[in-house]
């Protein structure tokens, strides 16, 4: 399962449209990329968020309609067991 975080920009410090192209994925290390990312003004003034899913309503699913993290894959395994 995945905990996906993002930064929601604040109205007062909205990023430039060019801001996203600053990031160079391949060459630098994770630490360097994090430093680079968090040095941006819109990130520093932004609001960190994470994403949840609400599972679909399904008969026989123990976690039917539960709030969960995406990428869980829990249903399939259980259904075969119960």
């Amino acid at each position: 399962m995945a905990l996906v975080l993002r930064i929601r920009p604040n109205f007062e410090s909205w990023p430039d449209t060019q801001a996203s192209s600053q990031d160079d994925a391949s060459s630098t290390s994770t630490i360097a990329r994090l430093d680079q990312f968090f040095s941006q003004y819109w990130v520093q003034n932004g609001d960190p968020e994470c994403v949840f899913i609400k599972r679909a309503a399904r008969v026989g699913d123990r976690w039917t309609s539960h709030v969960a993290l995406p990428g869980g894959k829990r249903g399939t395994l259980l259904e075969s067991l119960i």
Binding site: D47, P48, E49, V51, F52, I53, K54, R55, A56, P70
Partner: peptide
């Protein structure tokens, strides 16, 4: 995916 996910929600960490 309709059979698995009813909705997604972005939630600020400060709410959590």
């Amino acid at each position: 995916q309709p059979t698995e996910v009813a909705s997604t929600h972005w939630v600020p960490l400060r709410v959590l």
